[in-house]
């Protein structure tokens, strides 16, 4: 009887998705609800503190600095890692471009490196010695050596450069995949009508790869807002001069792991979660995922 129940076509789908349901309950729902509870506690003293953690956040300068840094980093990556890869992908996709496969593979290489290796390479390239690569390059233009990782703008530049190095190739691949799904006769028709390549790019490619763009935009927003390790590697730990490299997740790590203020850190995490969920809702709304799934 039980066997028959287990093997029936009505029950089977639930057996199939059971591992996912268990994972969601154990590793997402439980920690998130636990995080909510912890955020109203002082975990070390093991007592309830009401909304004290949240009100403390509102007057915490470092928390706002972390938000500012994360948002600034995210905006930088959006500006650099969407238009340029999109343009490069269109050029690579052109019939005039030979050996584009080779370039694609080369551009993908940095994505194979771990953040530890990439961060180490860039930290040493942006070293303070006059012979570090970054200082050699500006030396060519007659500038004297800079302490790159001690200044606000120069370290921002270094972090963005790591992001560009690692993700330009991947984003090019995303956009290429989108471009290849556009029927070529659209471009042929346009060029017969006398549209220039630039017009074709603006009027055909850009609108038709919108789903890809939305996808890349969303993952870049998440990745940008939750950036931590790049900064952790470049600054050799979670402490940067004047907190110039402090991010939201870095602050969460500092409070929760380094200072053992778990309740306070959970409040930080929940705020990040709410922001991410809001972006998520907007994105699902724009792409119409809800409508599609309900049909």
């Amino acid at each position: 009887m039980l066997k028959k129940f287990f093997y029936s076509q009505k029950i089977a789908p639930y057996v199939f998705i059971l591992p996912f349901v268990i994972t969601v309950l154990l590793f997402w729902v439980a920690p998130i609800s636990n995080g909510v509870l912890l955020s109203f506690q002082d975990v070390l003293k093991d007592e309830w503190v009401g909304t004290k953690n949240y009100s403390r956040l509102l007057s915490d300068k470092n928390f706002f600095k972390a938000i500012f840094n994360s948002v600034k980093y995210m905006i930088g990556t959006l500006v650099l890692l969407i238009p340029f890869p999109m343009l490069f992908a269109s050029l690579l996709n052109s019939k005039l471009m030979k050996r584009s496969g080779l370039f694609k593979s080369i551009y993908f290489l940095p994505a194979l490196t771990s953040v530890v290796v990439a961060g180490t390479i860039f930290r040493l390239m942006f070293g303070e010695a006059s012979s570090s690569l970054a200082n050699q390059v500006i030396g060519l233009f007659g500038a004297s050596p800079i302490k790159w990782l001690k200044g606000v703008n120069t370290s921002y530049f270094a972090l963005l450069l790591i992001a560009c190095w690692r993700w330009t190739g991947v984003n090019i691949l995303y956009f290429l995949a989108g471009l290849q799904s556009i029927p070529t006769d659209l471009y042929e028709a346009a060029s017969i009508d006398g549209a220039s390549k630039w017009q074709q790019f603006k009027k055909i490619s850009v609108p038709l790869i919108k789903p890809t763009t939305v996808y890349v935009l969303t993952i870049s927003i998440y990745a940008g807002l939750s950036m931590f390790l790049e900064s952790y590697m470049v600054f050799k730990g979670n402490n940067s001069p004047n907190n110039i490299g402090l991010t939201i997740v870095g602050y969460l790590y500092r409070q929760g792991i380094e200072k053992r203020a778990m309740g306070y850190a959970c409040a930080v995490g929940l705020i990040l979660l709410v922001v991410v969920m809001l972006i998520n809702l907007v994105q699902l709304k724009i792409t119409g995922t809800f409508d599609k799934e309900e049909k």
Binding site: V24, P31, A223, M277
Partner: peptide, 19 residues
């Protein structure tokens, strides 16, 4: 599935660690 797809692990990392 779609929602979890887009929650960065960092958000649940501390309570999960405690768990």
């Amino acid at each position: 599935v779609l929602i979890i797809l887009s929650i960065p692990l960092e958000v649940v990392m501390l309570p999960l660690y405690k768990q």
